[in-house]
Design a binder for these strands. Structure first.
Lengths: 105, 105
DNA sequence: CCATAAGTACGATCGCTGTCAAACTACGAA
DNA sequence: TTCGTAGTTTGACAGCGATCGTACTTATGG
C-alpha cells in the first residue's frame, strides 16, 4: 500500500499516523517549506539538517500519513502539500501546525 | 515550573509539547473522557488500560502541555480539560483530536 | 490512632523512532 | 557508454518514552 510512486488515496486519513507525522519538528519544517513554496518541490530543495537517507525517511512518513503527495520527474522526486485534502479532513490543523506568519526579520 | 499542585500558566502553550502529548492514544482518551464528562474528574474515574503509575505519568504530560488543569480535593486529584484556553491557542484542535461522536463505552 | 484508599516517586525494562553511512538504482548529459 | 546527480534501501546504533512493580506520602473513616 502507498507505493513510493503513488500519491496516497484521498479521504482515508488515520489520525494516529497524522499526529505521529506532525510530532517531529523536521517534518513540520518540511510541510512549512512546501506550503511557503506554493508549488511542488524537489526533495533536495527542502532545507532540513539531516542526511539524505533520513530525509527520505521523513518524506515517507509524511506521504504515508497522507500529508504530502510525491511523484517522479526524471530522477527528481517532487513533493507537494496536500493542503485541500488535509484541510477537509482536519479543518484548521495545518494553520496550527505550520508556522506561516513567522515573518523572520 | 508547573508544580504538581498548580495549574499551568495560561497562554504559554508550546506546540511541540502539545503535539507530544496528543500523539499518545491513551492521553487522547483521557482528554475525550474529561470532555465527555463535562466536569472535572478524579484520576481514578478515568478509564484507561494502564497501571496507576503510568496513569500518573500521562496526566502529568497532559498538565505540563497545558491541556488539563489539576488540583487536589482531599486525597483525590481532580482533572479538568482546559477547553477554552486550548481552543483559543489552537482553534479547532480539540475537535480534531478528540473523538466526540464516538460513544466511548 | 490505625487501616485503607488515592496518587506520587523511583528505578528498570523494552520497543520504537530518528539518525547516519554505505551500497545501490535510475535517469540525464557528455 | 560512461559519468555524475538524485534519491532509495539497508543495516546499525542511540536515545527517548511508555510501561510496570514497589515503595512512599497523605488524607479520610472507623
Amino acid at each position: 500500500m502507498s507505493d513510493a510512486r503513488t500519491a496516497p488515496e484521498p479521504g482515508d486519513f488515520d489520525l494516529q499516523k497524522v499526529l505521529e507525522a506532525l510530532v517531529d519538528p523536521v517534518r513540520r519544517s518540511i510541510l512549512a517549506q512546501l506550503d511557503a513554496a506554493g508549488e511542488d518541490l524537489r526533495c533536495g530543495l527542502v532545507d532540513i539538517p539531516v542526511s539524505k537517507s533520513t530525509a527520505t525517511h521523513h518524506f515517507k512518513v509524511l506521504r504515508e500519513a497522507g500529508l504530502i503527495r510525491q511523484y517522479y520527474v526524471g530522477t527528481a522526486r517532487m513533493s507537494g502539500l496536500r493542503r485541500a485534502e488535509v484541510e477537509e479532513a482536519f479543518p484548521g490543523l495545518l494553520d496550527i501546525v505550520i508556522p506561516r506568519h513567522a515573518t523572520v526579520p
